[in-house]
């Protein structure tokens, strides 16, 4: 009974179809995804405010508690703290935010809706990483501004230190973003996402030298923390901001730039592989 109705044309004619035209490239779709992700993210005002506020509040609280220099050094404890909290802020805006957001999108059907389109999951990952990148950088800038304004933090004074700062932030954001995407699989549903994400986030913060001088922690905690990116991000940022004399308080007695780059770079690669191996887009395989 389809015929006979006055159907307005949709300029739909199948004959006008152009089968040769191939789908938009992964890069172009990823850029479109990044735009959509950022727009959605920043329009959710409350989520933005609270995500950005958490590390800031931690900074203000611990900054008020700590006074004087880190034990046995000439470096103010507040400055040690800022470096750690910038690292923790990056983990919060990338790893935690992405893991929760994707668990929610999987639960409410968004992921499946996207999987029904010709889009590649790689474009989806890249859009997420781009969004996390922008928010991670913004969070870093905000914390840096507060550190300089309120706690007498000195910005890196040489090109080499700026360079260290940049590569640590970039590798940290990328590694934590991929790990967040992969870790979203652990949450069985949206409601479980927050507690599932809190455990590694809080746990690593406490043992990675964010709030305390790393070498003051028990040895086994140092070993565990050394396996994950946050410890190396915090250490790399200390090397960009603190006086070189602080190296004596680091685990190896030096900044260990080579090892930091290796561990963070390794986690970027491992994170990407974990995403590809564990991410469930929902489409059936042959």
């Amino acid at each position: 009974m389809t015929g006979g109705t006055e159907t307005t044309a949709l300029e739909y004619r199948s004959e006008s179809r152009t089968p040769e035209r191939w789908a938009p490239s992964i890069g172009r779709v990823a850029a479109a995804r990044a735009g959509i992700e950022l727009r959605s993210y920043f329009r959710n005002r409350q989520a933005v405010v609270f995500t950005f506020a958490l590390p800031l509040v931690l900074l203000l609280i611990f900054g008020a508690i700590y006074s004087g220099n880190a034990p046995g050094t000439h470096t103010p404890m507040k400055q040690v703290l800022i470096a750690g909290i910038i690292a923790s802020g990056i983990m919060s805006t990338t790893f935690s935010s992405l893991a929760v957001a994707i668990a929610v999108e999987r639960d409410d059907g968004t992921l499946r809706r996207l999987a029904a389109t010709p889009m590649s999951p790689v474009s989806y990952f890249l859009g997420k990483v781009a969004q996390a990148f922008v928010t991670g950088v913004l969070e870093t800038v905000v914390l840096l501004a507060v550190g300089v304004g309120l706690f007498g933090l000195h910005l890196p004074d040489t090109g080499a230190r700026w360079f260290t700062f940049v590569w640590v932030v970039v590798l940290g954001i990328v590694a934590c973003s991929f790990l967040g995407i992969a870790y979203s699989r652990v949450a069985p549903n949206a409601r479980a996402a927050a507690p599932v994400v809190q455990l590694p986030y809080l746990g690593l913060q406490l043992i990675s030298g964010v709030f305390f001088v790393f070498t003051s922690l028990p040895g086994f905690m140092q070993v565990i923390a050394g396996c994950f990116p946050l410890k190396w991000m915090a250490q790399g940022l200390r090397s960009a901001f603190l006086s070189d004399s602080f190296q004596q308080s680091e685990a190896a007695g030096s900044w260990e730039h080579g090892r930091t780059a290796l561990v963070l770079g390794g986690w970027c690669l491992a994170g990407l592989l974990l995403c590809l191996a564990t991410f469930k887009w929902g489409r059936a395989k042959k």
């Binding site: 779709v29 993210y41 059907g109 992921l111 809706r113 389109t117 889009m119």
Partner: peptide
């Protein structure tokens, strides 16, 4: 595919969501 669960695009406008989906296809409708 029009599933029962659309997913949420709460922060976006109708036009933004439809345009975005159009950008995922090789030969979309206006």
């Amino acid at each position: 595919i029009v599933p029962q669960d659309m997913g949420s695009f709460d922060q976006l406008t109708v036009k933004e969501v439809v345009s975005h989906f159009a950008s995922l296809y090789p030969d979309p409708l206006p």
